[in-house]
């Protein structure tokens, strides 16, 4: 037994330094604070989910907190039984996918070019991009432009005008500038072309920033409604954001004053906002865990020696 105990002790030591009392206290405090943060951030969302499943009287009298009261699925039925909802949802997925791909390719290539200090006219190219951050043509000229280019009623009206976000471009440029130039030089010595360097050396080392950009772009295209509203003339082409926005407006506004909505429409009016939030936020939320694993720092440690 003694030998066993003697054997055990060193293995235990190998696991790490025994935490001091101060560290333990820190861990407890830390856990409490972080749990608090979780509650504060999660509560509104759970409350929305609960509201989306409750009936009008309970919501208005403020009885709904974390659990639904007067369980009611009318709004979900109302929204999800409409074929147009699904059609528009498919549009949203399609628009988000296409627009994110386009945006990612254009932003990456532009940012990579701008990160090269030896590029002639680099300041001018940066200025061109930054200029659009502060000035734009305005709503109507934009509309005329997109219309006369024949982009109306197509995915390109959404993807192209918003393809490069200058903020994302600058973030990416800064990231590329921070990559050690020696790596690219080594690639060039070994016979890689410019595109080979970008595709085989720079991009594989930039997964973190690419993942960030995917997230930024995908979320913004997913949530966007204005471009689609402006450039689409048919309800079959709208993304789900426009559909739900219209549903909210219709159920809260008074079109035929003096006319009375059907009972289910009244109930829809009470919960539609919550239902909308649940239906549009959940899918994009599920993207986060998949992308999060790329957010790793320190991947470059030890790449350059000397």
């Amino acid at each position: 037994m003694v030998t066993l105990g003697a054997l055990k002790r060193p293995t235990r030591r190998k696991r790490g330094i025994r935490p001091t009392r101060g560290y333990r206290a820190f861990q407890v405090v830390n856990a409490i604070i972080l749990t608090g943060v979780v509650v504060v951030t999660l509560y509104p969302f759970l409350n929305i989910v609960a509201r989306s499943l409750s009936d009008q009287a309970s919501i208005i009298s403020g009885e709904v907190n974390l659990l639904p009261k007067g369980f009611n699925l009318t709004s979900y039925e109302h929204v999800m039984s409409d074929p147009m909802f699904w059609r528009n949802y498919r549009n949203t997925v399609y628009y988000t996918f296409v627009a994110t791909c386009v945006a990612l390719i254009l932003t990456t290539t532009y940012a990579y070019v701008l990160s090269k200090k030896h590029l002639k006219g680099r300041t001018f190219l940066v200025a061109v991009a930054v200029f659009t951050m502060f000035f734009n043509g305005g709503l109507i000229p934009n509309y005329v432009l997109v219309t006369s280019l024949g982009l109306k009623n197509s995915v390109w009206a959404i993807a192209l005008p918003n393809a490069i976000s200058v903020f994302n471009l600058l973030v990416m440029k800064a990231f590329f500038e921070s990559l050690p130039v020696e790596l690219e030089e080594a690639g060039a010595v070994d016979g890689l072309s410019t595109y080979g360097i970008l595709l085989r050396i720079v991009l594989p080392l930039s997964k973190a920033i690419v993942a960030t950009m995917v997230l930024f772009y995908a979320v913004s295209f997913w949530n966007s409604w204005f471009a689609a509203f402006l450039y689409m003339d048919k309800q079959e082409l709208f993304p789900v954001t426009v559909y739900l926005r219209n549903l909210i407006a219709g159920s809260t506004g008074a079109e035929f004053a003096g006319a009375i909505a059907e009972t289910d429409e009244a109930q829809v009016g009470a919960t539609i906002k919550a239902v909308t939030i649940v239906l549009t936020t959940l899918p994009i939320l599920t993207v986060y865990p998949f992308i999060q694993r790329y957010f790793v720092s320190g991947i470059m440690l030890g790449a350059v020696k000397g």
Partner: peptide, 16 residues
């Protein structure tokens, strides 16, 4: 309110 507010909002709100 108007008739719509009465029938769609207030009465269902007071259903309990």
């Amino acid at each position: 309110g108007n008739a719509q507010g009465l029938v769609n909002d207030y009465r269902p709100d007071l259903a309990k």
